[in-house]
Design a protein around this nucleic acid. Structure first.
Lengths: 172, 172
DNA sequence: CCTACAAGTTAACCTTGGCTAAAATACTAG
DNA sequence: CTAGTATTTTAGCCAAGGTTAACTTGTAGG
């Protein structure tokens, strides 16, 4: 198991991309008031807390649907993480009432877990389809969607969905 | 060794129980191969590692530009976090060669830090303007951009930028 | 010059999410 | 039924990013 594939930032940083018309982009915006600024960061921190849980729950739902059962081994392989880590996280998911299972047996979602999975899945799909509709390649769209999905508000989701729909009807 | 593939053994079951999602979204997308799937999650984990560092560096750059100096107090207020946390994180930033400062004095970016700030800022701006061009309200666009910016690949950034440009020229 | 308050640091603690190694349990041939 | 392999869990480690509380340092006012 070699979980860490390196897409390192520091390395990628050096090849500065094409200039982005700095005059219009950057320094026009003044800093927002402190408290509002803080709320933005708080929102991100908050998203981070649930992100991993959502990913697990979503993956478990996918496995249940596509393979009939959700086993720790498969989760570990798909998440690129050791089984021990999965075990520990699942314990947490259970304590949060999202997952149920008997020791040494495969996993199930509680109602709460299924609700979360459904929402998460839907968001994921909307973001993924939106990126594709925008013209992003499939491989990249998948990666970006995985990272973005937890940080997209309902308002933006609605707009993305509308965009995708229009794009599709236009191209058909 | 004998890798007993436990993959085939569920093949016959084909449960396919529920159809929860609306069929527009239900993407008959099968699961991607495990290793590819793992890479997606690895990319997200990787982004998380640098996310906070980028946020700090970006904020420090903003403060230097708009207020002439970057003090821990301001950072703490803007990040919505205690000063102790800032102090600890700054220590880490220093050890990574992104920030420099003398004890009890305000902060500066190294060249490396400035490069990171510039890139980060650029990405942030592209995402923010894209969201606005899409029609997302300012307040929400700011929040979403803050969360999304670290998860958007170069390919997607380019596409976003093109979209924003087209949108603007169309409306002028 | 000295003192009080603001700002920065340090210490001690917590939770999360990784890891490896080892123990416990389940499964499948033979 | 038993042995051997596969899977799951447990134990012990680590770093990151939070917290409070206590301590140090910087800086203005009297």
């Amino acid at each position: 198991m070699l979980p860490y594939e390196h897409f390192g930032y520091i390395g990628a940083m050096t090849d500065s991309p094409n200039e982005v018309t700095p005059d219009r982009l950057s320094q026009a915006d003044a800093l927002p008031p402190s408290d509002q600024h803080a709320q933005q960061y708080a929102a991100v921190r908050n998203a981070h807390e649930t992100e991993l849980l959502e990913d697990y729950v979503e993956l478990i739902a996918d496995l249940l649907e596509h393979q009939g059962e959700a086993r720790s081994t498969d989760i570990a392989a798909r998440m690129g993480v050791s089984q021990a880590t999965v075990s520990k996280t699942v314990t947490r998911l259970k304590s949060l009432g999202l997952v149920s299972s008997k020791p040494y047996r495969s996993l199930f979602l509680t109602e709460k877990g299924e609700a979360m999975a459904a929402m998460s899945n839907q968001r994921h799909a909307i973001v993924l389809q939106f990126l594709r509709a925008l013209g992003v390649s499939d491989r990249i769209a998948r990666i970006d969607a995985e990272g973005m999905e937890h940080h997209v508000s309902q308002e933006t989701l609605d707009i993305m969905q509308r965009f995708t729909r229009e794009q599709e009807s236009r191209s058909s």
